[in-house]
Lab assay of single mutants.
Amino acid sequence: MGFKLLSKLLVYLTASIMAIASPLAFSVDSSGEYPTVSEIPVGEVRLYQIADGVWSHIATQSFDGAVYPSNGLIVRDGDELLLIDTAWGAKNTAALLAEIEKQIGLPVTRAVSTHFHDDRVGGVDVLRAAGVATYASPSTRRLAEVEGNEIPTHSLEGLSSSGDAVRFGPVELFYPGAAHSTDNLIVYVPSASVLYGGCAIYELSRTSAGNVADADLAEWPTSIERIQQHYPEAQFVIPGHGLPGGLDLLKHTTNVVKAHTNRSVVE
């Protein structure tokens, strides 16, 4: 069995187990497998329904001669939608809004960016022009300005110390501490036991640490421990890039980060 097929099978099995364990909360999309990078042309966006009122959005972007996937989250909030992270750029984010209108038909009224990198804030200006209120932590807003990236308009308070959590509509926002970046936030959907790890969490097929220019490698494993301790009931975990899975993604990420750190020390 090929690795790609095995990865998709694991996603399907995880979703099936969740649907059985929580039949009222989960209505997993039966329309197909989780979209992969090879299936999404740059400039297009796919939506994948995880649970009743919960979707991931998947886009792709060219970077350094390669094409990478990027995940975000959409959560229903009454007759409105909360968006977590842009679709990595203005063109993708405009396509995301169009796809949401086509498939869901509810307005996106608020959006949260989970850290300051372009795959999370690139497209904020498109959201703002569409009347979406954009939010991020003060740290993310400051770092985005320093980096020359787009800056969300509103500040999220109460997320300055490791372990801080605040309720934001249908989700809980959690600051686990520094990891992929010093400002990275985690998003949890309690009604569906869905954990969105953003770039602080890796997919299972990833074996290298990737972009760690703004990471705190020493603190990252401790931050992941905080996530595990705060959300032990999480059933569906979405990484910032690639295929979702279960809580095993947290341990896998820790292993990859520690291996990278150990290699760096040896070198």
Rank of each mutant, 00 (worst) to 15 (best):
Leu249Pro: 00
Val237Tyr: 02
Gln229Phe: 11
Glu219Arg: 07
Val124Cys: 04
Thr109Asn: 12
Ala87Ser: 05
Val171Thr: 05
Ser160Tyr: 10
Val146Gly: 13
Pro244Tyr: 06
Pro138Asn: 09
Tyr175Asn: 06
Ile238Phe: 05
Ala133Tyr: 10
Arg167Tyr: 10
Arg76Pro: 04
Asp64Val: 08
Leu6Cys: 15
Thr114Cys: 03
Ile58Ala: 05
Ser155Lys: 11
Val237Met: 00
Glu39Cys: 07
Glu233Ala: 12
Phe26Lys: 15
Gly78Lys: 08
Pro239Glu: 00
Asn92Cys: 01
Ile100Met: 06
Arg46Trp: 09
Ser205Gly: 10
Thr14Gln: 09
Asn184Glu: 00
His115Glu: 00
Ala133Ile: 12
Pro35Gly: 07
Pro176Phe: 00
Asn149Tyr: 09
Val121Lys: 01
Thr114Ala: 04
Asn211Leu: 09
Asp164Gln: 12
Val121Arg: 02
Gly72Met: 01
Leu156Val: 09
Ile186Trp: 03
Ser27Pro: 13
Gly72His: 01
Gly240Val: 04
Gly148Pro: 02
Pro23His: 15
Ile100Gly: 02
Gly240Phe: 04
Leu73Asp: 00
Pro190Val: 06
Leu127Val: 03
Ser62Asn: 07
Tyr175His: 08
Gly158Met: 06
Pro221Gln: 09
Glu225Trp: 11
Leu10Pro: 15
Glu44Gly: 15
Leu47Ser: 02
Thr36Pro: 13
Asp64Lys: 09
His115Ala: 00
Ser70Gly: 04
Asn71Glu: 00
Glu203Asp: 07
Asp79Ala: 10
Pro170Glu: 05
Gly122Met: 11
Gly122Asp: 09
Gly78Met: 08
Ala213Thr: 11
Glu147His: 15
Pro41Asn: 12
Val121Tyr: 04
Leu6Tyr: 15
His252Val: 01
Tyr175Met: 03
Ala130Asn: 14
Thr140Asp: 03
Pro107Val: 11
Ala15Asp: 09
Ala179Leu: 02
Val112Gln: 03
Thr109Ile: 11
Ile186Gly: 02
Leu5Trp: 14
Ala133Ser: 11
Val166Asp: 04
Gln103Asn: 15
Val132Gln: 00
Val265Phe: 10
Ser139Phe: 04
Leu106Lys: 12
Glu172Pro: 02
Gly246Ile: 04
Gly65Met: 08
Val75Tyr: 02
Leu195Arg: 00
Val75Gln: 03
Leu173Gly: 01
Gly242Ser: 05
Gln61Ala: 13
Pro23Arg: 12
Val256Cys: 03
Ala200Ile: 09
Val42Ser: 15
Asp29Gly: 11
Asp118Ser: 09
Gly169His: 07
Tyr48Ser: 10
Ser22His: 09
Glu33Pro: 10
Leu6His: 08
Phe174Asn: 01
Phe236Trp: 13
Leu247Asp: 08
Arg110Lys: 12
His180Leu: 05
Gly32Lys: 09
Arg46Phe: 08
His117Ile: 00
Ile40Trp: 08
Leu73Ile: 07
Gly32Phe: 14
Ile20Lys: 15
Val146His: 13
Phe3Arg: 08
Gln49Glu: 12
Pro138Arg: 09
Thr261Tyr: 11
Ile186Phe: 07
Phe26Leu: 15
Thr182His: 11
Ser22Trp: 15
Ile227Asn: 07
Leu127Tyr: 03
Pro41Leu: 10
Tyr231Ile: 03
Leu106Ala: 10
Val108Thr: 06
Val28Lys: 08
Ala213Val: 13
Arg206Trp: 10
Tyr68Ile: 15
Asn262Met: 12
Pro138Ala: 09
Ala19Ser: 15
Thr134Lys: 01
Gly158Ala: 07
Glu39Asn: 14
Gly245Phe: 00
Ala165Gln: 13
Ser155His: 09
Gly246Gln: 09
His115Val: 00
Tyr188Phe: 11
Gln49Asp: 11
Ala59Cys: 07
Gly43Pro: 05
Val75Thr: 05
His117Lys: 02
Asp125Met: 08
Ser205Tyr: 09
Leu159Arg: 03
Val45Met: 04
Gly78His: 10
Glu147Pro: 04
